[in-house]
Simulated assay, not measured.
Amino acid sequence: MHDEAWDRTPIQPQSVDAPLSTSAIFLVVSIAEGDEAAERVRDVISDIGGLVRAVGFRDLNGHLSCNVGIGSDAWDRFGQDARPAQLRRFFEVRGPVHTAPSTPGDLLFHIRSERADLAFELERLLLGKLGDAVTVVDETTGFRYFDSRDLLGFVDGTENPTGAGMAHWSIVGEEDAAFAGGSYVVVQKYLHDLDAWHALPVELQERIIGRTKLDNVELEDEPGARKSHKGLATVVDANGVEHDILRDNMPFGRPGAGEFGTYFIGYARELWVIEQMLRQMYVGDPVGSYDRMLDVSTPVTGTTFFVPSNDVLEGLAP
Rank of each mutant, 00 (worst) to 15 (best):
P161G: 04
R207N: 07
A257V: 11
I208P: 01
V68W: 06
K189Y: 09
V307C: 13
P104A: 05
G71A: 03
I11N: 09
L20E: 11
G315N: 09
V185Q: 01
R144M: 05
Q86F: 09
E121G: 10
I25C: 09
K230C: 02
G142W: 00
S228V: 00
D117I: 11
V283Y: 10
E206M: 09
G128T: 11
W197Y: 04
P308R: 06
F57A: 14
Y263M: 13
E121Q: 14
R115W: 14
S113V: 08
S65K: 12
L27W: 05
T262S: 13
L126A: 10
V202Q: 12
K230V: 10
L108K: 04
P299Y: 09
S309Q: 11
Q12C: 14
R8H: 13
I45A: 01
L194S: 00
Y190S: 00
A178F: 14
I70T: 02
R207Q: 14
V202F: 06
T304E: 02
R254V: 14
A167T: 04
A317R: 13
S228E: 10
N239P: 03
R83T: 01
D81K: 12
E33C: 04
S30H: 02
F146H: 03
W272H: 12
W272C: 07
G165L: 06
E206H: 04
R254W: 15
N160S: 01
S21K: 02
F120I: 01
L214S: 14
R254H: 15
G165T: 03
F264M: 09
P101S: 10
P10T: 13
E270K: 10
G62V: 09
G128P: 02
H198A: 10
